[in-house]
Design a protein around this nucleic acid. Structure first.
Lengths: 192, 192
DNA sequence: CAACCGAAGCTAACAAGATTAGCTTTTGGC
DNA sequence: GCCAAAAGCTAATCTTGTTAGCTTCGGTTG
């Protein structure tokens, strides 16, 4: 009987892919094992259990999102950068709803936790967008949280089919980008 | 042996309260039964199972949130109404994270599903806020989705301890309200 | 007032899923 | 070719959700 040749990274990657396919709540150790051509207990040679698997999927997702948003923003500034970041982020969540869902509610164990590191990289990518606006030093954290809330809120609501009536969702997202751009510019030059 | 005297509403109310206490993922039929002084299978006389319970908690939560936001907005307009709605909504989510979490991802079975009815009432409360801004008829849906994304995003991120660094979260939310107010006013008078 | 019947509860049993223990086998380095 | 560590497997346990079928309470009715 040939060996499957798994390692933690392969298990996590397959888990993330499967979560995207069937939805995080339906990601089960048995289903993942089947997908990998292995019996369930074998997975425990590579990951510590369901919670550990979830954390690793979360770190993977945050890292991928950070890469995607960072790449998309590079070379742009102001409204262009904002639009690129927002669209890329939403695209990532819609393409990978399962692994993104895994990021919600994970508590990093410390500053060196891969989840914390990747999360910080994603925030950095959004911070870069804000540099194109004259936000006062003291307001950058607020603006970052607000921008994150906007993108996270829209993307997760759409991924959960939360926008039910007929108006075109992509059009709404364009409107949102316009709204954010104008809102950020309206917040410029506020004294610290 | 005296009878417990349960009914579906009591089970759902206790389930919602318990979800708020221990977190929705830890709301278990056994724990709920224990809380109600009853054996687990007895719950099935009142609710159809875990999924049905979740739907009913969601409908309860959406109705309560709609009531709260609707009450808070009454008598106000413009920025005041926006601030009242946003603060009340966030307050509800932070006080009742478990039952609000139950609302995420429920698919109403039809327009008469209690979840759909309550959800519509909550949206109506936010729609009332937008009447204080001169948003073009054609843009109201977009503005509503954007406002919802903002409030939902911030509240759920905060409830999940997503804002980790030191800046004061309440201050950020005030900033967000200001941002939304200015953004909405910046979107006024856009031709349809 | 007693018989009755439906609802509310209970016990027992089963199914799914996560996890652990302990055994077997492959495989890479000597 | 040998051998230890790693990778996989089977068997078993534990927790949860759920169903079946029995029992009993409590209001209704003759």
């Amino acid at each position: 009987m040939p060996r499957a040749g798994l390692d933690p990274a392969a298990v996590v990657a397959a888990g993330a892919a499967l979560a995207d396919e069937v939805g995080l709540p339906h990601l089960t150790m048995g289903l993942l094992a089947e997908r990998l051509g292995v019996r369930t207990p074998s997975l425990y040679k590579h990951v510590g259990g369901q919670e550990d698997l979830n954390r690793r999927i979360a770190a993977l997702a945050l890292g991928e999102a950070a890469d995607a948003v960072g790449d998309a923003v590079r070379g742009w500034a102001g409204r262009d950068a904002l639009a690129a970041a927002a669209r890329t982020f939403r695209g990532f969540v819609l393409e990978h709803p399962g692994r993104y869902a895994a990021t919600i509610g994970v508590e990093p164990s410390g500053p060196d936790d891969p989840v914390a590191v990747a999360g910080r990289r994603l925030l950095d990518a959004f911070t870069a967008v804000l540099r194109g606006y004259r936000i006062g030093e003291h307001d950058v954290d607020h603006a970052l949280r607000t921008l994150r809330s906007l993108c996270h809120g829209f993307a997760t609501l759409q991924a959960a089919r939360g926008f039910r009536w007929s108006t075109d969702v992509d059009e709404s997202f364009d409107w949102l980008i316009d709204f954010a751009d104008r809102g950020l510019r309206a917040m410029e030059n506020t004294p610290p």
